[in-house]
Structure formats: structure tokens, C-alpha cells
């Protein structure tokens, strides 16, 4: 019961954070690749650090930056997490913006839990086949489909179709499904 109340308040807090437009970011400070500093100056590294937020409660141990044409590709890993987070940035009118991302650096337990929650949905359960991926979806994407909070995309890829569930881990529920 208490946990539920906490969740309500946490959800409400997230809602209020969003409407006040003051989402905080964590400073991972793990740019241990000296090449990174050749590619970007300190100002831009500081700017990047604002964007690079690992899964809650963890930190990036290694962040590598490469520049391909006008794109800056950042790959970040943590020794405590499975998988890799990839961020692609571009400069737009002199400002660094996040163009795309794929965040798979998650605790194995979280991935398992997300898959189990997704499989509780009948539509997903009936259609899921092939290999499965679990990715963290950032609030700026989630808000288009549900609400501005971190959600998880659990996706089964097979030869013929893609079956996906958008999972709210706090509420332990599937908020959207996709079969394509």
C-alpha cells in the first residue's frame, strides 16, 4: 500500500517536473577517452554531459565520442549494466542537439521485468516471437505516446513482423502496443 502511495507521489512529481520544464540531468563525468577531448572542447563536453543520463542509480564508466561528418556519436557503457547506450548529436544553428538515441544499457533484472510485464498483455503474448530487445525511452519521446517519463520498449523482431510493448515500469503496465 505504502509503495503504491509513493508511486502516486513519484508520478505526480514527474508530472510537475515536466510542466515546470526543469528536468534535471546527472553528470556522468566518465569521459575517459582522451580522443573525446580532441573532438570536442570542454564547453561542448559539458553540454554533452547534460544529455548523457544512464539508467537510474547507475553511472557510465566509459564514454567514447566519435565525429562522423557533422554527427557526434557517443557510446556509453557501465560495468554494472548489460549493453550500450548510443547517442547521436548534431549541431543546429551552433547548438548541440540530440538527434537520435538507442539506450540498451540496462540491468539484466530490469530487462527481464520489462519482458514479463509486456507478456502480461494478451496481444503481445499472442504475437511475440523472435528475438527480443529492451530499450530505455526518454521522456521527450514518451510524451508523444503516453506521458513524459522514462518508459521501456520491449520489442520482438522476427522475419515477418515487429511486435512491441511500451512499458511503464513504475506502474508495471503496458501503455501502448505495436504490431507491424
Amino acid at each position: 500500500m505504502k509503495i503504491k502511495i509513493k508511486f502516486i507521489f513519484i508520478s505526480l512529481s514527474i508530472f510537475l517536473i515536466f510542466i515546470s520544464g526543469c528536468l534535471n540531468s546527472e553528470n556522468p563525468n566518465a569521459f575517459n577517452n582522451s580522443e573525446s577531448k580532441k573532438i570536442l572542447d570542454n564547453k561542448d563536453i559539458n553540454k554533452l554531459e547534460e544529455y548523457l543520463i544512464p539508467f537510474d542509480g547507475y553511472k557510465y564508466d566509459n564514454i567514447n565520442i566519435s565525429k562522423i561528418n557533422n554527427e557526434i556519436v557517443v557510446r556509453a557503457t557501465s560495468k554494472d549494466l548489460d549493453g550500450e547506450d548510443t547517442y547521436v548529436f548534431i549541431y543546429k544553428n551552433g547548438t548541440l542537439i540530440l538527434k537520435s538515441y538507442s539506450l540498451e544499457a540496462l540491468p539484466r533484472q530490469v530487462k527481464e521485468k520489462c519482458i514479463n510485464i509486456a507478456l502480461k498483455n494478451e496481444e503481445i503474448y499472442k504475437n511475440a516471437e523472435g528475438y527480443v530487445t529492451v530499450k530505455r525511452i526518454l521522456p521527450q519521446t514518451s510524451k508523444k505516446f503516453y506521458m513524459p517519463k522514462v518508459l521501456f520498449s520491449v520489442t520482438w523482431h522476427s522475419k515477418d513482423k515487429v511486435v512491441s510493448a511500451l512499458v511503464d515500469l513504475d506502474e508495471e503496465k503496458v501503455v501502448k502496443t505495436y504490431i507491424g
Binding site: S153, V162, S164
Partner: peptide, 15 residues
């Protein structure tokens, strides 16, 4: 990819 993963287009995803 599902619509909520379109932000990862252009990034290699290993299955």
C-alpha cells in the same frame, strides 16, 4: 522498429 523507437534510426541495433 515500433514508433517509439524511431529516435534510434541510423544507429546499429544488434538483435
Amino acid at each position: 522498429l515500433p514508433p517509439w523507437e524511431t529516435d534510434s534510426e541510423g544507429i546499429y541495433n544488434i538483435g
